[in-house]
Design a protein around this nucleic acid. Sequence first.
DNA 1: CGCACCATTGACATCCTTCAACCAGGGTGG
DNA 2: CCACCCTGGTTGAAGGATGTCAATGGTGCG
Lengths: 220, 220
Amino acid sequence: MEVRTGDQFYRQGRPTTAVFPLRQGSAKSVYESPLGWRQVTGFSLPGDVLGLEPNEAPAHATSAIALQDAICCVVTAETLREHMAEPVFRDSVLKVMRRNAERERMLLVAVGSMKAAQRLAMLLLDLTGEHQRRGSTDGTLTLAMSRTDIASLLGLTLETVSRLLSRFASVGLIAVRQRRVRIIDKDGLASVYADLEPISPRAAPDHEIGTAENNEARLI
Amino acid sequence: MEVRTGDQFYRQGRPTTAVFPLRQGSAKSVYESPLGWRQVTGFSLPGDVLGLEPNEAPAHATSAIALQDAICCVVTAETLREHMAEPVFRDSVLKVMRRNAERERMLLVAVGSMKAAQRLAMLLLDLTGEHQRRGSTDGTLTLAMSRTDIASLLGLTLETVSRLLSRFASVGLIAVRQRRVRIIDKDGLASVYADLEPISPRAAPDHEIGTAENNEARLI
DNA sequence: CGCACCATTGACATCCTTCAACCAGGGTGG
DNA sequence: CCACCCTGGTTGAAGGATGTCAATGGTGCG
């Protein structure tokens, strides 16, 4: 099945008639609370399975929206149920679900008790991890999602995300240009994530900033 | 099975050998992230089932700790699995799991995009709801958890929680004394939750504060 | 009684949001 | 082809909400 940028794979609250293994493109999951608050709860890449609800939920807990033109399979609930009889298939499906649950739990902790820089570093590390797992070797990745989406996921504002990316860049951790990000210092990011070194704007002397600018011009 | 205050029903990461329907007392679920960040992810009351993991997880995703001396049943994974064959039982178990999942999702949105006052109002409303569901008619409830636990759940500090409770009290929404809370204006709390009326410290004239103090002395 | 522990309150620091202006790229129509 | 615009992104200044540090107070328990 083909889905255009911005279109929905499924809607929150609608009955789960099928799940959608993602082949190409990417998607975000959005949860809308009863009061109308909306929040991005995750991003999905090829290989993920959209709409896989735990607990055999009869309805989708979130909406899934394509961030790019995407291609996915469609596995009806019925055939899914049939295949769940096969142990191998069953195990891999459960594994995906658990992974998602784990991710959401980490997100909760991140949003609940980490600072903005840590959260963003975490996201970048997670994304590069997924990227590498999909076979890419270089440290360059293209964010499919907007700053607004990132901000929503992390419980921040888009301005904060933007500023933080700039700051990471100015300190030489990454290079940013639009939605292209190159990871320069993964360990550095990791220590920001672990809050080992607070990233202060004035941490980098002027000449350092110059270096970072060179990086940016050169690398992206 | 009896569990003393502070003792654990089960530990995060340990294999799920059983689930624990809670009969008496209360408990908190605590998640510890790989980096050592710890966060309360929920409170449980009699009637809840502790340790019920979705996705047939082989290990507990959180630790459960008794907030008071508690009594619970012990249902081994095996007997649970057997009973899951019965449709009625099965449905009610799945319902509990979905309810938990829904709660956690609302928490994520709350922590990610609502202000402190809203989050706390939400918690209070949730707790009174659960309280009433268990048959109590009056608006008085006793919090089994410390301010620190509440703060952790809501992604705040204990000081903020304390201040906010005082503020709610000074505005006449509730009466607080230690861990006893009396809900005075449920609708008011609801509108705080919905962010309809920002609770400013100076919103209440002096005589109002006097009234609130009377309430406190009288009601708790 | 005195010791922990939890809770409250104040003063201050800081992080983040808010408001606002500006900028860049990508598409569209003239 | 270029001017235009429109969305998304960046950046600055200011203020507010929350965190932090610290002192005080209350409660229950040994």
